[in-house]
Design a protein around this nucleic acid. Structure first.
Lengths: 94, 94
DNA sequence: TTGTTATATCATAATATTATGATATATGGA
DNA sequence: TCCATATATCATAATATTATGATATAACAA
């Protein structure tokens, strides 16, 4: 295990970031729609703004999503193509 | 989100069960070797017996692995074929 | 500059996960 | 039956995750 320890840790970090129903919903939405701003996600999820923002922070921190600012809004998109492969295991339509 | 809430939760539960380096190592080993008993895993991982056993419990609880007793030993195998698809995203050789 | 909107970060309480020694259970042999 | 071995479960301390109100920041318009 020592040898591949780093690889196992990196994979676990990505799985951990995806292993929450709210974050899965966000990620699946981004795969389906291509991009989304925070306010729209917040509306869909019906959660406090800080809750959504902190979930997005986790997705950003491990490189799952990336952002692009457009005036006041920030748009999120999927940044790692492994994500699609993972989500497809559960949701074929993605 | 309400509509697919159950689906998101189920997927998150499986991802959560895999989202730990020790459990990933166990699961990858099982995919590669087909089956393994607890004592051998314990040796490979160099962890206390109860630690290994509790990780195995998590994998059992969400249906990722199944067991078959052979005398004193218990052999584990992968029981859900989505697991292979997920692990392959990180480890091509599986 | 002041106000407004969208988003991010901070602080923190509640909850879940992790690790591990101690104990329990199951199997088979003497 | 008694003992040894393999595995599972319990108890619990340490750590991490989650949720959310409060506060901060960034962009833009008046």
């Amino acid at each position: 295990m020592d040898n591949n320890f780093k690889q196992f840790n990196e994979a676990a970090d990505m799985l951990k970031a995806l292993a929450h129903p709210v974050r899965l919903c966000i990620v699946k939405g981004l795969l389906t729609k291509g991009r989304c701003n925070v306010g729209h996600m917040q509306e869909c999820l019906d959660l406090p703004q800080s809750t959504v923002s902190q979930h997005l922070q986790k997705l950003r921190n491990c490189g799952i999503v990336t952002t692009e600012r457009n005036g006041l809004e920030v748009n999120y998109t999927i940044a790692d193509n492994r994500v699609k492969q993972l989500i497809q295991v559960f949701f074929r339509e993605v």
